[in-house]
Write a protein that binds this DNA or RNA. Structure first.
Lengths: 195, 195, 195, 195
DNA sequence: AATGAATGAGCTTTCATTCAT
DNA sequence: GATGAATGAAAGCTCATTCAT
């Protein structure tokens, strides 16, 4: 298992720092190697190529992301609460790791279509989690059975992503978590759709 | 006025096609020139550099975008209607120009931070339009005065952007405009927030 | 006769200014045209190509240079006096036209070997003048008949040129003409060679 | 120490040959790399950029130049002898390396002002050597204490440089070293200045 | 005579990847 | 497993010159 080899995560963590601090196009393999404290060639013992570093990076971080959110959702009963803790954790995880926020919201998006598609694959794990919450809401009767789950999921993810990106673009100078209740209200009422 | 010089728009239109068909990083200046039917050097009579082509491209298209939407909104009374025609036009404009959709949703985002920031500046025109609609809703009493305009705008734009990007990523193989009523309902209820 | 057409000298004078102020490699034909107040294409009605502007420039200025010096020499009897007024005028002409000094001492030398050779041809007029002075010195007995005229001329021209270049390189911040008597003494004694 | 890395001198020597044989503006990095038997990219492991090759080239050769001359001067007592061996070596070093002569007398001077200034800095080492000889002449009483060292140095260097440049411009078809005694006599008498 | 829009050839430098040690 | 020197392909931009008006 790759993940158990110490240098694997060492290189990924180095990549996050180097990309966040230098930007995607200035994150040369040699810089990542230097930050990780290994030789350039060593990178290629753990990753197929540069693209593989990026996708692996995203995969590793996203797994933690989804695990964390699944964990906090588990204890919640109503869809409102589930949505709330999901939004809260989404914002908190990004707030807690400024480097990661920069990488996921700004830098990684500069990659080409191939990489974007692979990243989207990884993202599916998160989107399915959102779907699960929405479906639980329909089943509990809190949401109408007419709710278009795919569109609602796009609204939720699109909104959170836009919020986060704007926040990063503004150099993270305001508090993202503070806005959680307001966003929760907007999205919840959007999904409820009765008024 | 730049826009009146025929080659200016000729080059911009060529850039949209070349970027859409080859991807951002494979859209060399020489390819754009060839597509536009001019010499490489001619590009530089109309644009400062490659970056300037991209920003101008985005600016020109966004101006048309905003003008068109302002026009259709003008005739509408209720905020619900305004939102509907805005969403409808957002989707229709992208649907009607597949090349443009690819460029704005996927390719242009691969540009570096400098260009991204300038593109964001251009985008402000559109975001202010959304704000105007939201404020008109508050003034007419259709939306609560408690509505956080900035967050609501991020929800609306984030949702539309996510929808459009997903649609382009899926090779535009379903009908985007068809989803307008459902999205309108989601966003409107989100903003109304009474239920 | 080219020289009588007003735009011919207009373009040459513009070239001196543009080259002096921007440097040889930044003196584009379009800049010279603009400075001269004519269209780019007009340049080519008066000069075969860019190279021709440079050589013509040097030729026109050198003719004035040689004419002036021949004039002042004419009135002098001894070789010492002739040498003195030659040196004096060499320094004064450069001192009086800072732009020209920059162009002849620094910028024009950045041209390629072809142009250098043609410039050297033009320079011959001046070198022959120096030879004439030296020969008059031998004939009058002031200089030994053993004097190697070619080498002495190289000494004289090389010394004046090095002085002038150093002075221009130091931004012409000291007085070149002030040094004339000392240089005259050095060169005269070099040529006399009896001690 | 850069100079000990074999490829460093290999590239510099290749640059001398390529510049001498093709001219400054036709000495592309790829040509130099080919001549040196390395890949284009390898050049940039040893030099910051193309400019750096030129300046390093001049620096390395000038160091040898100055070292050599300092060595031969050391054994000489009178200023006349010192001047003689200096002139002799100046001419001999250029005569012995035709490529180097072309590069230093013609090609390198086509570089832009930035490079010229850096080259002038390197040249200072040589000019200081000339000053040292002149001062030793004043101290020994061979030269008058009235001698303007700066001007005398400009005469000596200017004369040698002009001789060498003319010789290279004439395709080095006569013997430069043969002229050493005559030049020595001219310059020595110029400095002595008593006659 | 004068214009100036259009042309298109040409080159330095970067950086992901390899492979001998 | 680890190293890091070496590789070499690839592209944006400039500017002297032309020529239709």
């Amino acid at each position: 298992m790759k993940r158990n080899k110490p240098k694997y995560m060492q290189i990924i963590d180095a990549a996050v720092i180097v990309i966040a601090e230098n930007g995607y196009h200035q994150a040369q393999v040699s810089k990542i190697a230097k930050q990780a404290g290994v030789a350039d060639g060593t990178i290629y013992l753990y990753f197929k190529n540069k693209e593989d570093i990026l996708i692996s990076l995203f995969k590793e971080k996203m797994v933690l992301f989804v695990e964390k959110i699944e964990e906090v959702i588990a204890g919640k009963q109503t869809v409102s609460e589930k949505l709330l803790v999901m939004i809260e954790n989404h914002c908190r995880i990004l707030s807690d790791d400024h480097h990661l926020a920069i990488v996921t919201q700004l830098e990684i998006r500069q990659s080409n279509k191939d990489i974007r598609l692979k990243i989207n694959d990884v993202l599916k794990g998160y989107l399915e989690l959102v779907d699960k919450i929405l479906i639980s809401g329909i089943e509990s009767g809190e949401f109408s059975s007419d709710l278009n789950v795919r569109l609602a999921r796009q609204m939720i993810f699109g909104t959170l992503d836009e919020m986060a990106t704007t926040w990063v673009m503004n150099d993270q100078k305001y508090d993202l978590v503070e806005q959680v209740p307001a966003i929760h209200k907007l999205l919840l009422h959007g999904c409820r759709g009765r008024n």
